[in-house]
């Protein structure tokens, strides 16, 4: 029997609710809205539940037609929010490659280096730094490069916040392998042999100010290390630069979220403020923005076998320190190569 709960309810039960600070939040979503959208996700879930209640109530009063319509809306909403590994559709992804290629090549002038560092087969946990607000061009460029290099047939999943899965782009994302950020989905993806892409920094990193653009900031989130150890898979760091130049990011807006009591009433920890097209002053970035054509460069680093390198019972702090250090060093090198912002 199908699980009648909303994806938010299931994710929360799995401990993956982003706003709850579960593993899903710590891993960080793809193109995530992260904690910012946690309360909206719950609000949407409430709406879905309300739709079902309304349908039930109307049915009881004999208004079958209206009840049917409401039930259909609730079902549609629930279907759109759900996501699992089986939603990945290599054929659909393959048909989208030309569009991804056009945007990646001509708008972002994407360049992905050393894809050969990713093991040719088998499960692998790819850990990236995240940039670009709610529209994350680094993920975009990397997904295209991965899919053409290894072929769309290779299982490849990315973690995303539930609200991202409810966006108008959900169908494309799901067919590309994006799954709701939860511990269960992460475990299932790796157990099925997929390459899994996570962004531990999540919303905290993706909304950092532009003047911190060349800084890896995972905010101390170490869930990805535990995940790699549990699944016994190598960690492949993915370092990207340029995403934080697609708009002028001014502040995460944590103070604004506090001032407006959003952290208390809506559990919004950040309320990012940026100057971005077409909004000019963009608060929240809920509707996304039109990204500037910043050059995106991505470099894939050598795999890290945590147990081989740090022993059978590794110190998570030590591993975290090592992973972020090698990523920061690479980011510094990439930054030194750039002559001008946006232009690259």
């Amino acid at each position: 029997m199908a699980d009648e709960r909303t994806i938010f309810e299931r994710a929360r039960d799995n401990g993956g609710g982003a706003a709850d600070g579960g593993l899903g939040a710590r891993l960080g979503p793809l193109g995530d809205i992260g904690r910012v959208s946690g309360s909206l996700a719950r609000a949407t879930a409430d709406f879905a539940r309300a739709g079902r209640r309304l349908a039930g109530a109307l049915a009881e009063t004999g208004q079958d037609a209206t009840a049917g319509a409401s039930a259909r809306i609730a079902r549609e909403l629930r279907d759109r929010l759900s996501a699992d590994l089986d939603d990945r559709d290599p054929d659909h992804l393959r048909e989208q490659l030309p569009l991804l290629w056009l945007i990646s090549s001509f708008w972002f002038r994407g360049e992905v280096r050393n894809l050969g560092n990713i093991p040719e087969e088998g499960p692998v946990l790819m850990v990236g730094n995240h940039s670009g607000g709610n529209l994350t061009p680094d993920t975009f460029v990397f997904t295209l490069a991965f899919s053409t290099y290894f072929g769309v047939e290779r299982p490849f999943n990315q973690l995303a916040h539930n609200l991202v899965m409810a966006s108008p782009y959900a169908r494309l994302l799901r067919s590309g392998g994006t799954v709701a950020a939860s511990h269960e989905n992460s475990r299932q993806a790796l157990e099925s042999g997929a390459a899994l892409l996570v962004y531990p920094g999540g919303d905290w990193e993706v909304h950092r100010p532009t003047w911190e653009r060349n800084r890896v900031d995972f905010a101390g989130r170490k869930g990805f290390i535990r995940l790699a150890l549990d699944a016994n898979v190598p960690i492949v760091p993915i370092v990207s630069i340029g995403g934080q130049e697609t708009a002028l990011f001014l502040s995460r807006g944590a103070w604004l979220a506090q001032l407006l009591r959003l952290d208390r009433y809506l559990r919004l920890k950040v309320l990012p403020i940026s100057v971005a097209l077409p909004w000019i002053l963009n608060i929240g970035d809920f509707l996304g923005h039109f990204p500037l054509p910043a050059k995106i460069t991505v470099e894939v680093l050598e795999p890290i076998d945590v147990r081989r390198q740090f022993g059978d019972d590794p110190d998570l702090d030590e591993v975290y320190e090592y992973v972020t250090r090698v990523m920061q060093e690479t980011l510094d090198t990439l930054a030194a190569e750039r002559r001008l912002p946006v232009i690259g």
Binding site: D91, R94, E95, L97, P98, L99, L102, S105
Partner: peptide, 16 residues
């Protein structure tokens, strides 16, 4: 080419 990619495929082929 990429079968089934529609207009973006047509454009991408020419750009490539």
């Amino acid at each position: 080419g990429v079968a089934g990619s529609g207009i973006p495929g047509w454009v991408a082929e020419r750009f490539a």
